[in-house]
Design a protein around this nucleic acid. Sequence first.
DNA 1: CTGAAAGCGCTTACAG
DNA 2: CTGAAAGCGCTTACAG
Lengths: 345, 345
Amino acid sequence: MNSENATIYDIAADAGVSIATVSRVLRSEPNVSSATREKVMQAIERRNYRPSSIARGLTSKITHSLGIILPKLLNPHYAMIFTGAQEEARKLGYTMSLFPWSSLDTDAYNPAAMLAERRLDGLIVCVEYLPPDHDELVHASLLALRRYMPVVLIGCVPPWYDFPAVSNDNAAMMRQVVAYLNGMGHEKIAFIGGVQEDKDPSRRDVGYEEGLRDAQLPYIASYRVYGKGTAEAGKAALDEMLKGLKREYWPTAVIALNDLVAMGCLEAAREHGLDVPRQLSVIGCDDLFCAPYLSPALTSINTHQQQTGARAVQLLLSGERRRETVAWDLMERASCAPVNTETEE
Amino acid sequence: MNSENATIYDIAADAGVSIATVSRVLRSEPNVSSATREKVMQAIERRNYRPSSIARGLTSKITHSLGIILPKLLNPHYAMIFTGAQEEARKLGYTMSLFPWSSLDTDAYNPAAMLAERRLDGLIVCVEYLPPDHDELVHASLLALRRYMPVVLIGCVPPWYDFPAVSNDNAAMMRQVVAYLNGMGHEKIAFIGGVQEDKDPSRRDVGYEEGLRDAQLPYIASYRVYGKGTAEAGKAALDEMLKGLKREYWPTAVIALNDLVAMGCLEAAREHGLDVPRQLSVIGCDDLFCAPYLSPALTSINTHQQQTGARAVQLLLSGERRRETVAWDLMERASCAPVNTETEE
DNA sequence: CTGAAAGCGCTTACAG
DNA sequence: CTGAAAGCGCTTACAG
């Protein structure tokens, strides 16, 4: 254990060259004689020398470190985004730091100061599920952050935000889901979860409404329950819906905002004695790792979050200022089935 | 958007003082007159100035950034550890970067170089589930990393590793689990998952064996299946065990290495037509967020991973070189029940 | 209480 | 192909 790590001066002295030359071989510049290069390499090897990325950052202005802001790593959805982004960053020689952000500036913790001091080369921000009244606040925060570094957004980005972004076409996705269920004979299709006043037109429940229209089905307000994107909220919402309706009006299919909500719906169905999928089809979204192990295995949408994260990093580093869309895949499993036509009970 | 961020020189000029004075108010040193302090604060405010943490790091030798190495963020177990560590770090003014590490140096990706260059103030390494043949290699890698920064370990740490660490007492935990099941009348208790040749005496399956001994139960090799800690591996393992035994010898309870393995076991039980918990009790470990939503809800052990992560950060920053243990809680849910004494079929 | 100066460990023109 | 020198934006003794 060296008491002090070697510096570029030590290597220069050892190799009998100037620090400029050491710097050149460090950055593999071509104009160094192979003999010199060899001497320097050996000195580096011998002393186990690693250039300080921080000294390097001071002069070159680039720190090779990125940041990502997301609400909650405990939700596997975000863990997937983070993983995709982190791996892409590492491939490109960048480091990735996490900055959690609960509803941005409304939280006591304001990461903006911490972020500004870090001199990051770029920042990814996941802006999904924003409370509508925070809309302006969030936008202002993002603009403030952009003063310090390039920013790329992930998720449900309001169209008037002038930021590069990568996301799914949520509306198209949900239109497909409605068509999928309708194709199996479902006409009483509920949608559970999400913020009511969100003005983003690409959000999932907008696609739900459009899907109903495509299928010439009525929009039944009782089948649309708003709420947070958690399992508890999903369970409570379906429970309440069922309790509030005579059995003949119960939906035959439920679209959940995400898999967490869907997990709650499965639980509520179980407590109401509903057999999934015979009496109720349930479909989630995001395809969490546990979806195949729920009972019944949950049909869901793979939204390719890792790819989303990776693309965000590429966009960030390329400097392109555009919006991108990532494809999705319907993962058919056991929780959705053709509507049951036999009379119950 | 300023073309250039302000530096300490700009602030000094604006406030009509020297940069040393600006530095003093930045670091809230007491020996500054309140008039001067005020002038400087205003200049800072006016130009939206944030000191560069990287220039600061160059001189002060402390970067206020930590790193964490873990196998796979997609496993919620690690996401919990990361979250706990990250939040504690942030509270203390530190940033946390993730460095994934698949079986350390055996992977093509060697984070050591990247880490050494980063001049981190400390590093947390999760060393759980090490392939036994990598034992020496891993130890060597850890020693190499320690040349560059303090290291604290999390997880199953072999006792001969001379590193500060925080972990659960896995053996004691599993002894309790065996006693819990035995207390419900179970005597045919299986254990699924884990690496066979691991030499760490504090690992979970050692506790299983000790628990059997405590209960004066025989150790039946057929009830002990090794394998990876994944749902697929868990499912395959239980499936194989059941196929290889006459029904009268089937275990009445299964302890899974972790919740992922337990999820696989529930699936295997379902495919074999076994009713959990009536015909088979299943208990997991780590209490993943989905445990309550499995069917039946999975009994598990809450190993307080967030607390583990937080303690690791505290240990790292305090410089104390000791090993700590974190408590756990048995989360009783529906997947474990008293052994069924009525004759089957 | 305040400032001038050196130094942290690199990169980057600029000469040669 | 190589080196001397300035500079990145701070902190830290050292004077006063």
